Amino acid sequence: KGCNCRRSGCLKNYCECYEAQIMCSSICKCIGCKNY
């Protein structure tokens, strides 16, 4: 399942991608994603 966080840059544990240690991709559609 994808993540669509808006404010944290996908760097907080409530973002599913970050919590699962998945990098930003087409699945993880965080706005302004900084989780490289």
Rank of each mutant, 00 (worst) to 15 (best):
K1P: 00
K1M: 15
G2R: 03
G2A: 08
C3D: 06
C3T: 05
C3I: 02
C3L: 01
C3Q: 03
N4L: 07
N4E: 10
N4A: 08
N4H: 07
N4Y: 07
C5R: 02
C5L: 03
C5K: 05
R6K: 14
R6V: 13
R6W: 12
R6C: 12
R7D: 14
R7K: 12
R7S: 08
R7G: 15
S8D: 10
S8T: 06
S8W: 02
S8I: 14
G9Y: 00
G9T: 07
G9W: 00
C10G: 08
C10R: 02
L11A: 13
L11H: 15
L11V: 05
K12S: 08
K12N: 03
N13G: 11
N13T: 06
Y14I: 09
Y14F: 05
Y14A: 06
Y14G: 13
Y14V: 10
Y14E: 12
C15K: 06
C15M: 01
C15E: 10
E16K: 02
E16S: 02
E16P: 05
E16D: 02
E16L: 03
C17M: 02
C17L: 06
C17A: 04
Y18I: 05
Y18N: 13
Y18G: 12
E19F: 05
E19A: 09
A20Q: 09
A20T: 07
Q21D: 02
Q21N: 09
I22C: 02
M23H: 07
M23I: 02
M23D: 14
C24S: 07
S25N: 15
S25Q: 08
S26Y: 15
S26C: 00
I27P: 13
I27T: 14
I27V: 13
I27K: 14
C28R: 02
K29Y: 10
K29H: 15
C30G: 06
C30S: 04
C30A: 06
I31Y: 05
I31A: 15
G32T: 01
G32R: 06
G32Q: 04
G32E: 11
G32M: 01
C33G: 11
K34A: 14
K34T: 13
K34H: 10
N35W: 07
N35D: 14
N35A: 14
N35R: 11
N35V: 04
Y36C: 10
Y36V: 15
